[in-house]
């Protein structure tokens, strides 16, 4: 999946996540996760794993992913990331 432009999916409503993806000049997947401190402390690694696993599954590369989490469950994170990546690659 080739990311050619910046795109977003999701929202900052409770239980959702706002994902922004954009092309990166350096190879790999560059993730910036933003959430409440307590969430990052307890679930930060898990959220990062969900995002990285889904990005790799979709074949994303040379991409920066910004995730603003509002308490999203795994399925929401996966869905919003896929939508953002598809929008960025169209």
């Amino acid at each position: 999946m080739l990311v050619t432009k910046t795109a977003q999916a999701g929202s900052t409503a409770n239980s959702d996540v706002l994902i922004t993806v954009s092309p990166s000049e350096t190879p790999g997947i560059h993730l910036q996760l933003k959430s409440k401190d307590v969430v990052l402390k307890l679930f930060g690694e898990q959220i990062e794993k969900v995002i990285m696993d889904k990005a790799k599954e979709l074949g994303a590369d040379n991409v920066t992913i910004k995730a603003e989490d509002k308490g999203a469950l795994d399925y929401t994170i996966r869905a919003r990331l896929q939508a953002a990546l598809e929008r960025a690659s169209n």
Partner: peptide, 8 residues
């Protein structure tokens, strides 16, 4: 986006 969310 909604279509993918519902699937997941």
């Amino acid at each position: 986006s909604a279509r993918i969310l519902v699937k997941e």
